[in-house]
Design a protein around this nucleic acid. Structure first.
Lengths: 136, 136
DNA sequence: ACTCCCTATCTGCTATTTACATATGTGTGT
DNA sequence: ACACACATATGTAAATAGCAGATAGGGAGT
């Protein structure tokens, strides 16, 4: 989830802070609540719905899903019907839904922090021709 | 920045995802743009202004500041005037301001992702007595 | 048959970060 | 002397993301 684009006015790509560590997990739980499906489709949904910049790392997605299953927050079974290779189809458990609610609290709080940042930032730089303005 | 509170309905504290990795750095740059000061006060400001849940880790703050200085995004000099121990007073450089603008782009994008998540979440659970609702 | 590509899952490795603990030292109040 | 707030710094462990690569099934074209 790195917002770096070549051709900008700096060369380094130090925006690892953009990672929003752990955001992958609640996204998977939310998408699985909406619709039981398999890892590959979850990856694509995250990008398509604007939950993730670019396609999320496949390794991270599959590892998260296995971990969530170990913790009882999702369940899975192999699905051999349909075309292509076998898919491991995941569904959220009631415990997973509880956990999703906890995540929503955290995400609201994080959103508030970002808004505080942006409010202060815009107060200082509003009207200037900043990269931030150009980006939108 | 862990939202876990004892007494909840789950025992584990897996909300390390709440970390918002790297958010510390742009906060320091923003605060230093507003007012040149030293690390200890920056820590307190972050909490007081709602940019950080609780007081941020001192080790992280001081390490970030040293690193920002290595990269030329801030400058510092020792300030022995005033009461108490010597303070290392930091000020942002023009390069630091450029970098702050880059961060604003990233943070807007991350905020959008959180909003997308919450919009989908609330569409599914609005009206229910969720932890998320209780939290506010 | 053969090659290429898309689908689908999984594992290994490394760099980076955070959170916690701890160390060091100054100045003030009692 | 002592405790405490201020102020900076370092050591360590756990966890994550990102990248690369391995393994395989199935369809399209040649």
């Amino acid at each position: 989830m790195c917002g770096y684009e070549p051709g900008g006015h700096h060369n380094r790509c130090d925006c690892r802070g953009a990672r929003m560590e752990g955001f992958l997990q609640p996204c998977l739980l939310l998408l699985l609540y909406e619709k039981s499906t398999h890892g590959y489709e979850l990856m694509e949904s995250m990008n398509r719905l604007g939950l993730w910049e670019g396609v999320p790392d496949a390794g991270a997605v599959y590892r998260h899903l296995r971990r969530l299953e170990e913790e009882g927050l999702v369940r899975s079974h192999w699905s051999t019907s349909g075309p292509g290779p076998a898919r491991r189809r995941y569904e959220i458990t009631p415990e997973g839904v509880d956990y999703l609610h906890d995540w929503a609290v955290t995400i609201r709080r994080n959103k508030a922090a970002l808004e505080t940042f942006l409010a202060r930032y815009e107060k200082l730089f509003s009207g200037h021709d900043t990269d931030a303005a150009k980006g939108y």
